[in-house]
Nucleic acid binder design. Structure first.
Lengths: 329, 329
DNA sequence: ATCGTTCTTGTAATCGTTTACAAGCCCGAC
DNA sequence: GTCGGGCTTGTAAACGATTACAAGAACGAT
């Protein structure tokens, strides 16, 4: 026997399908009607079919979250915040991993036209014309967690990494560290470019020169370790700012391996202030770029746009703060 | 103007909707027919509606993954493995967080009857009669990553934590540590119970007595730190086995805070062998319970059951191994 | 030329809901 | 008693695809 439909319930209750639907959706009905329908529903163990409902009402009550890598703790933080907001609003969350390629991101955005979900929250790691175009033309509301040109006319929530960089450098300088190196992630990514720019500006603000620069192949722990030699052969630094926490922790392992003490010999600052920052040892001073808040606000923006697609796009910037821990003096 | 439907394409191409559908699904058709339909599709920018398709074919091409906490690195590992398998098979992944309560898990399983997804992969942290019942009665295929009674008659993939425990204790004993303490997570959870049992058995196998026992309130870093005093006041141990990596790392921070050296004074072993184990300092010796493999195999089992719901349930046990790092001598 | 086979295409039913519209009922006002 | 207004309820038409079935075309064999 297959599962009961609304027609079965109607038959069992001796009423019409419309009445059943109305009772189920809380529309006005007599007490007796409600009673009869509910008994029938109970008896048959009826549950409405989400697929059919989706087709009729044109909504799936699903939202898609697209990130480059579910393993990066910064996305985990964001995802948790997003999950909280959307599930409170009665939506389910579809998580997709886009990988590092922009073409996959474009394909994903285009695919949204199929109507899998009622909205898309995307945190693109690389952005190009195609992606912006596909987002602008997308059939369903899109919110970008990250940086896209204002002319794209899309809701965005982004971090202020230049300012975050400045917080980091200010702190290091205040502690008497002037010989500062920089370990960036891939410079051809949106966050990579922003942090590189922020780093230069922040140094300039203090009239300092960079002592050493390295570019990791990826925003991962392994890449952080792997690019330590690039910095170490340059040498001469008493502090390193890293483009994210994973890189920082990877670097710290290599510093320890060559006998350099953190923060005694070298101070280390990370970015993202992910859970890893307080779990590693020594605990990591890290720029909090507000990932949880960004996730939360992006989700709220998406929900708001689903309510009313005509509202003017908002561009929210979440302000950074510095979480000072033991990796800096 | 609203998006084109299959009827619009049919009109534009001057053919019937059936023909359009057939061409789109790769069923036999003349070359000219294919040509005309594809041109019309191109021109109108038609994309099929997933909602309508779902209703008709009874499948959503979505799979749900339910875990207690997306932030736990062990779930991150599992999720990544699952994502890989299911997306290769053309499914999207819906991730839901159940939280620690078994009633929420039951509600989730029951809710699957609405047909959101074609299958459910659940990793329940607490299990009771209701949950087993709801899983058995579930309308869609369910695979459990974890331990449920064999009589439930459901596909499961689980770790062998007793054996994992034994690996840990064997290693400690081989290194001359006999005064072993245990930091467990909540004992009323499935993994908590399994690890507690495993610990006792493993000690017995070596004719040892436990030196100290503590039960953290949760499988988190913070809970690990918080329960360190319980162990420290007991004292007298030269090694601690922890029920997961987060607890181990939390504990290590507190050990360092009171001046105990790892592994000099105290050896520490974690479980899960998550990414955190190689990121923390000192790097953590950890029992690899095969989370990636469990995720992968669970996903495969789910796909197989979706293909053929009559196959006899399989119960896969993934064997553990020990990843030896610097937190043990 | 006729028939049967095979292949292509079209018509229409169907999936399980929601909802516009109409019909029926009850009740009070005239 | 009749009429109008407000409720409640039912009938049937969507939503946008897939697919069973039938009809028509093409073609070779007799």
């Amino acid at each position: 026997m297959s599962r009961p439909t609304i027609a079965g319930v109607a038959r069992a209750a001796g009423v019409s399908v419309a009445s059943v639907s109305r009772v189920l959706n809380g529309l006005p009905a007599t007490e007796e009607m409600v009673e009869r329908v509910q008994r029938a529903v109970q008896e048959l163990g009826y549950v409405p079919d989400a697929r059919a409902r989706s087709l009729k009402v044109g909504r799936t009550f699903q939202l898609t979250l697209a990130v480059a890598d579910v393993g990066n703790p910064v996305y985990v933080t964001m995802m948790r915040a997003v999950e909280e907001v959307v599930s409170a609003a009665g939506y389910r969350l579809v998580v997709t991993t886009t990988g590092p390629d922009v073409v996959d991101e474009v394909a994903l955005v285009r695919g949204m036209a199929r109507g899998y979900a009622d909205g898309l929250l995307i945190s693109p790691i690389r952005v190009d014309e195609d992606l912006v175009k596909s987002i602008r033309e997308c059939e369903v509301p899109v919110v970008v967690a990250g940086n896209v040109p204002a002319k794209a006319g899309v809701d965005t929530v982004r971090a202020n990494s230049p300012k975050g960089m400045l917080l980091a450098i200010d702190h290091l300088v205040a502690q008497g560290r002037h010989r500062i190196a920089f370990l960036n992630g891939p410079a051809d990514t949106v966050p990579g470019a922003a942090r590189s720019k922020g780093f230069s500006e922040a140094l300039k603000a203090h009239s300092l020169q960079p002592i050493a620069l390295a570019e990791a192949s990826d925003f991962t722990f392994a890449a952080g370790r792997a690019s330590a030699p690039d910095l170490l052969t340059a040498g001469g630094f008493d502090a390193v700012v890293c483009a994210n926490d994973l890189l920082a922790v990877g670097l710290m392992h290599e510093l320890a391996a060559v006998g350099l003490e953190v923060p005694g010999d070298v101070a280390v600052v990370g970015m993202d202030d992910s859970e890893l920052a307080e779990q590693c040892f020594p605990t990591l001073t890290s720029v909090n770029l507000g990932s949880a808040e960004r996730g939360r606000r992006a989700a709220e923006l998406l929900l708001a746009r689903i309510e009313d697609n005509d509202r003017t796009p908002r561009r929210i910037v979440v302000q950074p703060s510095l979480s000072i821990r033991r990796s800096t003096p």
